[in-house]
């Protein structure tokens, strides 16, 4: 579990995160949603420690990240997996080596065990053995995301962060990636935090949703309660398209019945 308490962050006088508090539970897909520029990426990067917060606490099972030494942060990060928006695969390494690398660095397993674990992770994300020796530039965006998920879970992380996991993917591939993240979260009891503005993804796998607007936590709830919220900013964001306006109308009509 990750608890964020009264976090503030500014960049050159611009107050980006304003007193944000939230709880991200383990075994659940926690989603941070909001408009572009609302501060959700800064929030996620602050939670991981890529940005140092100005004030507030970020507790990983009680351990406060801002108080940790550089060494402790590095140790904590071995419990963290991250799926970046652009996959961020190491382009000088093959698909196999991308997943093998964190194991080689920190696992302490034998070469045979590391190869087995790498193959297991790649197979877990439904990548065939034939793709193992390809380079990231030789595979599709969806496959890159799957390799990135395999790399993220290689060291059995307790925490999984996903920054816009569906960006640039077609709807079907996006759904596959979403389901894969949700399955892995439940299977390994991981605390998963996803940063997204993809409504399909939010409605598909979001167990807990936190809406960030202009640097503040505006709303928090489940994907079911999102349809019945009175929060204007949330409604403007979630039901911006005609399709979702109709879905909301239908959901409310169903509730009244």
């Amino acid at each position: 579990m990750i608890e964020v308490k009264h976090v503030n962050k500014s960049f050159e006088g611009h107050h980006v995160l304003k007193d944000i508090s939230a709880v991200f539970e383990s075994g659940k897909v926690n989603m941070i949603i909001g408009r572009s520029g609302s501060g959700k990426t800064v929030l996620m990067k602050s939670v991981i420690g890529l940005h140092r917060v100005d004030s507030g606490r970020i507790e990983y099972n009680g351990r406060n990240l801002p108080d940790m030494s550089v060494k402790d942060v590095r140790l904590l990060r071995r419990e963290v997996g991250m799926l970046f928006q652009g996959a961020a695969l190491f382009d000088s390494m093959t698909v196999f080596d991308n997943v093998y690398f964190p194991l080689e660095m920190f696992s302490g397993l034998s070469a045979y065990e590391m190869r087995e674990r790498t193959a297991f992770c790649l197979n877990r994300v439904n990548l065939a053995d034939e793709s193992f020796e390809l380079f990231p530039s030789e595979i599709s965006g969806g496959m890159q995301k799957r390799v990135a998920i395999a790399r993220a879970i290689a060291l059995n992380p307790k925490y999984l962060f996903c920054d816009e996991p569906n960006s640039g993917l077609d709807p079907k591939t996006a759904l596959i990636i979403d389901q894969l993240i949700a399955e892995i979260t439940k299977e390994y009891d991981i605390t998963t935090i996803i940063n997204s503005h993809d409504m399909n993804s939010i409605m598909e796998i979001g167990d807990k949703i936190i809406f960030v607007n202009e640097g503040q936590k505006e709303w928090e709830g489940s994907k079911d309660s999102i349809f019945h919220s009175d929060n204007e900013a949330l409604n403007n964001f979630v039901f911006a398209s005609d399709l979702f306006k109709k879905v909301k109308k239908a959901a409310n009509a169903y509730k009244k019945m």
């Binding site: 890529l50 590095r74 990060r77 963290v80 190491f90 690398f101 964190p102 920190f106």
Partner: peptide, 14 residues
């Protein structure tokens, strides 16, 4: 700029 350095840091690599 392609976040590969961030990915290394997240893994726990200096």
């Amino acid at each position: 700029i392609t976040e590969q350095i961030d990915a290394l840091e997240i893994i726990g690599v200096n």
